[in-house]
């Protein structure tokens, strides 16, 4: 959190809507540990990461849904996730990512 807090503060000051994604569980080999975070704005800005770059695109899409609905989501990525065929972790691990709205309008 501390590493992406400067960006979040900046976005808050600019009135951005922000979603936060956090790795809450890992199994097998994963590129980033539990606690790794990525913040996303509705306007498309990003800070931090939740993997080595393999699932950030998918998490970004979930973050936009979460900002739209206002409802958090727990999503799992890994080789066993058939829906994520194009975003599987190349290292063979499985990660659970919790995506929540931090700042929403309305």
């Amino acid at each position: 959190m501390r590493d992406i807090l400067p960006e979040i503060e900046q976005w808050l000051a600019e009135g951005e809507e922000i979603a936060l994604a956090t790795v809450v569980r890992t199994a097998g080999s994963s590129p980033r540990p539990v606690g790794a975070k990525m913040a996303v704005t509705r306007s498309g800005r990003m800070a931090g990461s939740v993997s080595g770059g393999c699932v950030e695109g998918a998490v970004f899409e979930v973050a936009l849904q979460v900002l739209e609905s206002g409802r958090p989501q727990l999503v799992q990525y890994g080789i066993s996730d058939e829906m994520a065929w194009d975003v599987g972790l190349s290292c063979g691990g499985v990660i659970d990512v919790f995506v929540e709205p931090l700042v929403r309008r309305g």
Binding site: T22, V24, R71, P72, L74, D96, F98, E100
Partner: peptide, 10 residues
Amino acid sequence: ATLVRGEPLG
């Protein structure tokens, strides 16, 4: 602490 599975989610 954040409730990540169950209700109230988040």
